[in-house]
Amino acid sequence: MKINNVILRTVSKVVVFIILTLAIYLFLSGHHSPGGGFIGGLVMASALVLLFIVYDIETVQKAIPVDFKKIAAFGALLAVGTAFGSIFFDVPFLTQSFAYFDLPFFGKTELTTVTIFEAGVALVVVGVVVTIILSISEDV
């Protein structure tokens, strides 16, 4: 049965945008206010899930042509790699460093390796959640 989905699709476009923005915001603000890589990744994943629900797998994958397993693996590599990097600086494994920079426009900005670590976490979460849901859904 053909189902008219205009309302849903229209709204979803806006909603997905809001969600993605929020996801990035959460990811970046994690160090100082609630949020962080994990939650950011989850929110991003839920945006993707919403897309999958509203549209269908093939359509979405055509728009986002990536292998989510590899995304996940890459994220893990990033997270572990950040940790591993400390070995080369002869500091204990997993030592995070942070520094403050004065950047134009942004003012005093904190740059920290935690952010890279968290980015890895976020990617893993996105990759894994989407992989799981897609794996089941594709298997009919």
């Binding site: 806006v14 909603v15 809001i18």
Partner: peptide, 8 residues
């Protein structure tokens, strides 16, 4: 957001 989605 709520305004937008709840009716849908």
């Amino acid at each position: 957001f709520v305004f937008l989605t709840a009716p849908v």
